[in-house]
């Protein structure tokens, strides 16, 4: 396979960024794609930034600046922070709901508004889509399933070499039936988002 695809994912510790990454990697492997993914743990659990990668057709598990075809941001400030990883003309999918870092939540520092972030991202990428990931998760039945809504939107944009049925099958194969049901609902909700 000569087509390469690099997806950079970013979020906040505890959001389930790594769960989404593994699900996507399993889905890619289930259709026979040469997939590698990478993640940096360590202190991530304590509310820090969690970054992960998914690469198809590459040996490296790492994505350098300007190399990502797709940027998936599970929190808008982190989407903006990771923008340097996106290649010119790349695709951005992001949550539109903020989880401000403590310094911002307590008024010691300021952060750009979601509208600012949307505008900056739109100006710098090929196409972008912002969706209310946590709300969609709650609507589907569990706030954590919001990440899967973001993956649903990614499928709907045609940005992956496989469709949402493949993800749905992977969800069914790897999660308990009750959890799978919620996540498939989130997948559908997300898939309905991109206009």
């Amino acid at each position: 396979m000569s087509t390469k695809l690099r997806i950079f994912m970013t979020g906040v510790g505890g959001q389930g960024t790594l769960t989404a990454t593994t699900l996507l990697a399993r889905a890619a492997l289930s259709v026979g794609l040469p997939v590698t993914s990478g993640e940096i743990h360590g202190m991530a659990q304590r509310g820090g930034v969690v970054e992960s990668t998914l690469l198809i057709g590459c040996k490296s598990p790492k994505i350098g600046p300007g190399e990502a075809d797709i940027l998936l941001g599970f929190e808008p400030l982190e989407t903006l922070r990771a923008l340097p990883y996106l290649k010119p003309g790349g695709v951005v999918l992001s949550s539109s709901e903020t989880m401000p870092p403590p310094s911002v939540a307590t008024g010691k520092e300021s952060a750009p508004s979601v509208d600012d972030i949307r505008a900056k991202v739109a100006a710098k990428c090929g196409s972008s889509c912002f969706l209310p990931v946590r709300s969609l998760g709650v609507q589907a039945g569990a706030v954590q399933s919001g990440n899967i809504a973001l993956l649903g939107a990614l499928c709907a944009m045609g940005a992956l070499p496989f469709g949402k049925e493949v993800l749905a099958n992977t969800i069914r194969a790897t999660m308990k039936p009750k959890v799978a049901e919620i996540n498939i609902k989130a997948l559908e909700l997300g898939a309905a988002c991109p206009a």
């Binding site: 600046p65 003309g89 870092p101 911002v104």
Partner: peptide
């Protein structure tokens, strides 16, 4: 130099999100 999507963004540094005691 390999370009990235954002180019040289003149933004001030973003608020950090360091790991913290829970």
């Amino acid at each position: 130099t390999a370009a990235c999507a954002c180019g040289a963004d003149p933004d001030v540094p973003l608020a950090n999100r360091p790991p913290n005691l829970c």
